Amino acid sequence: MARAKAAGAQSLRSMALDPVRNFKHEALDVPEWDAAKVVVMALSAGDWAEYRRRAAAAVAAARAAVGLTEIPEEEEGEAPAARLVDIDSSPLYAFVLVRTLLDESHARIFEDADVETVAKAFSPVHDRLVGKAFELSGVEAGAGAQDPVEAAGND
């Protein structure tokens, strides 16, 4: 009886600690990758916090590069769009892909050190997978939705 109870507790522990079981996820076919099957998972709270930190740092660096203060100062009568700067979002979206793209066995495909490499190869295919990760994370994506970079602090 004790063994059965211990085995049941171990199984419950495994289920409680399984990130794929505990986060929204979706299996997808990627036709451009010879119909490879992948799993895209929602961002964890830690991933989302790191994404926001990276987005804020990218915005601050872009503002500094064009001679603006790192934190936008509101001026009376100024439209919010006048305070925005363009940033290369590929490294941010590559970070999301690295953290959320899994193979069929639910193992991560990329390591954190791969973000720069993924950013250099970023394409519409990658963008589609990142869009799915944001959707699963409860972040609206697509036309008319607020850009997640802006949501992270580019205002």
Rank of each mutant, 00 (worst) to 15 (best):
A141G: 09
A143M: 14
K120Y: 04
V118H: 00
A113F: 05
E135S: 14
K132F: 07
E135C: 05
E116G: 03
L129C: 07
S123G: 07
R128G: 09
D114L: 01
K120V: 06
A121L: 13
S123D: 11
D114R: 01
A143W: 00
L136P: 10
V139S: 07
E111Q: 08
S123N: 14
S123T: 12
G131D: 12
K132C: 12
K120L: 06
K132L: 13
A113T: 06
A119G: 00
A133S: 12
D147G: 07
V125N: 04
A145P: 09
D114A: 05
R128I: 07
G138I: 13
G131A: 13
D114I: 01
G142M: 11
A121H: 11
D112M: 10
A113L: 01
P124Y: 08
K120H: 06
G131I: 10
K132V: 15
A121M: 12
F122T: 07
P124M: 10
T117A: 15
S137C: 09
A113C: 02
S123F: 07
L129K: 06
A121T: 13
V130P: 01
F110P: 03
K132M: 15
K132G: 08
A145H: 08
F134C: 05
V139P: 06
F122R: 05
G142N: 10
L129V: 09
E111C: 07
A141N: 11
A141T: 15
V139E: 06
H126C: 11
A145T: 10
V115A: 00
Q146V: 15
R128T: 13
K120E: 09
L136W: 08
H126R: 06
G142V: 12
A119V: 02
A133I: 10
P124W: 06
A121K: 14
D114Y: 03
E140F: 14
V130I: 05
T117L: 12
S137Q: 02
A119I: 03
A145W: 07
A119M: 01
A113E: 07
Q146E: 14
T117N: 04
L136Y: 09
Q146H: 10
Q146I: 15
T117H: 03
V130R: 00
E116H: 01
S137D: 05
A143K: 15
V115R: 03
A143E: 14
H126Q: 09
D127V: 09
G142K: 10
V130N: 03
V139L: 12
V125H: 00
E111M: 08
A141M: 14
D114W: 01
D112H: 06
D127I: 11
Q146A: 15
A113H: 02
V125L: 08
E116D: 12
S137N: 04
V115P: 00
V118A: 02
D127A: 15
V125K: 09
E140C: 15
A143P: 12
D147T: 02
Q146K: 15
A121W: 02
A141C: 13
H126A: 14
K132P: 02
F122Q: 03
A143R: 13
L129T: 05
L136H: 10
V115F: 02
P124I: 11
F134Y: 10
F134E: 03
A133G: 11
E111T: 06
L129M: 14
V130F: 05
D147F: 03
E135G: 08
T117Q: 05
A119R: 01
V125A: 13
T117P: 00
V130A: 00
E116W: 00
E135W: 04
V130K: 03
F134S: 04
V139G: 02
A133D: 05
K120F: 02
A133E: 01
R128P: 00
